[in-house]
């Protein structure tokens, strides 16, 4: 089956990564400002206003678009940084805003009606009623679906909603319903939803103990990796805990999503865009993953089999999964 290529939406945490994504064939680069207004508020990451202006010029000259994520929830009593982020992104010429907070969606619709509004995965909208509401109330034109739906469920959903859908294709797995996970807040007092960072670096410690690398988050030991065993992120959802005398992964193993094998099915399900996760990753990741998915998306659009992408070396725990897309469990 051939068809319109899926739009390839790629991450960038730095100007170098933005150029790498554009050069590797991204249709769109998404990014955020260097503060708590976006869900990847990592030290040394993200864009200043002048960097966004330069990035927009670089991308637009090469036919690539830029979406700006302002996708955390505005702090009570202090919406100004979020309003400024929306205003600056729109005025600098961003091609779309990725938003989650309904107050911010309303602000963007009234102040910048001409700038496209996409609903961030952080809003965790996954049923037709919720999505229709976001469309009617705030003029949302696209929704980024949480990573909890099967391909069949996505197809059913697409048949019932008036907006485009974007789904995650590759990268870190956030196994809980996005925007609602409190594991990081429980362990550290800081969450991706309010502070833009899950398991913040300030609370992470690695220690080499004999032949094991121990990762800790706040007061919790997350994992112990014997020498030679591939490692994972220090998030509670990927923790290896002892229960009933056995150490095991209670929620999810260290692994990354790779939906390349289900691209034809996602196209048939009516998905419009594919998102690659990883604004916190380096230029080498961006260049390699974007180029591989460019090949995959083009092959799927021609109706050719999707070639093996060989991205195993980029995955968490050096393992990949199709996640919920092909899940057989509930």
């Amino acid at each position: 089956m051939s068809g319109t290529p899926l739009e390839l939406v790629c991450p960038a945490g730095t100007p170098g990564a933005l150029r790498a994504a554009v050069d590797a064939g991204a249709d769109v680069v998404y990014l955020g400002f260097r503060d708590e207004t976006n869900a990847r508020n990592f030290p040394g990451l993200n864009f200043s206003r002048p960097e966004l202006r330069d990035g927009l010029a670089y991308a637009h000259e090469r036919g690539c678009r830029i979406y700006v994520a302002v996708n955390t929830f505005a702090a009570a009593g202090n919406p100004d940084p979020w309003h400024r982020a929306v205003d600056d992104a729109a005025e600098l010429g961003a091609d779309a805003l990725i938003l989650a907070d309904i107050g911010l969606l309303d602000y963007a619709r009234r102040r910048h009606p001409e700038t496209r509004r996409h609903l961030s995965v952080q809003a965790s909208a996954s049923n037709p009623t919720a999505i229709a509401y976001y469309h009617e109330a705030f003029g949302v034109q696209r929704v980024v679906l949480p990573r909890v739906l099967t391909v069949t469920e996505i197809a059913r959903l697409n048949a019932q909603i008036p907006v485009e859908t974007e789904v995650f294709a590759f990268g870190g797995m956030c196994v809980m319903a996005e925007g609602r996970c409190v594991l990081s807040a429980y362990a550290t007092g800081r969450s991706p939803n309010m502070n833009g960072v899950c398991s913040p670096a300030s609370h992470v410690r690695y220690e080499q103990l004999g032949g094991r690398m121990v990762s800790r988050l706040g007061r919790f030991t997350i994992n112990q990796f014997p020498d030679g065993e591939p490692a994972g992120y220090p998030t509670l959802c990927k923790g290896r805990f002892v229960a009933g005398g056995c150490a095991g992964y209670l929620f999810e193993e260290p692994t990354s999503l790779d939906a390349s094998t289900v691209l034809p099915e996602l196209m048939a399900a009516g998905v419009r865009a594919l998102k690659i996760e990883g604004r916190q990753r380096g230029r080498a990741y961006i260049a390699e993953v974007v180029a591989a998915f460019r090949r995959a998306v083009d092959a799927a659009a021609r109706g050719d089999p999707v070639p093996p992408l060989g991205l195993g070396g980029m995955t968490e725990g050096l393992r990949e999964t199709t996640g919920a897309y092909a899940k057989t469990w509930r």
Binding site: F42, P43, G44, L45, P200, A201, S202, V204, R205, Y206, E207, Q208, M213, F225, D227, G228, E229, P230, A231, G232, P254, Q280, R281, G282, R283, A284, Y285, E288, G313, M314, T315, E316, G317, L318
Partner: peptide, 21 residues
């Protein structure tokens, strides 16, 4: 990529992770 080097254990880090990032 730094994360990939960490996953494969080619890179080991200790101490203040904010500074490292």
């Amino acid at each position: 990529d730094g994360d990939a080097a960490f996953f494969s254990r080619d890179l080991a880090v200790e101490g203040d992770m904010e500074a490292v990032l």
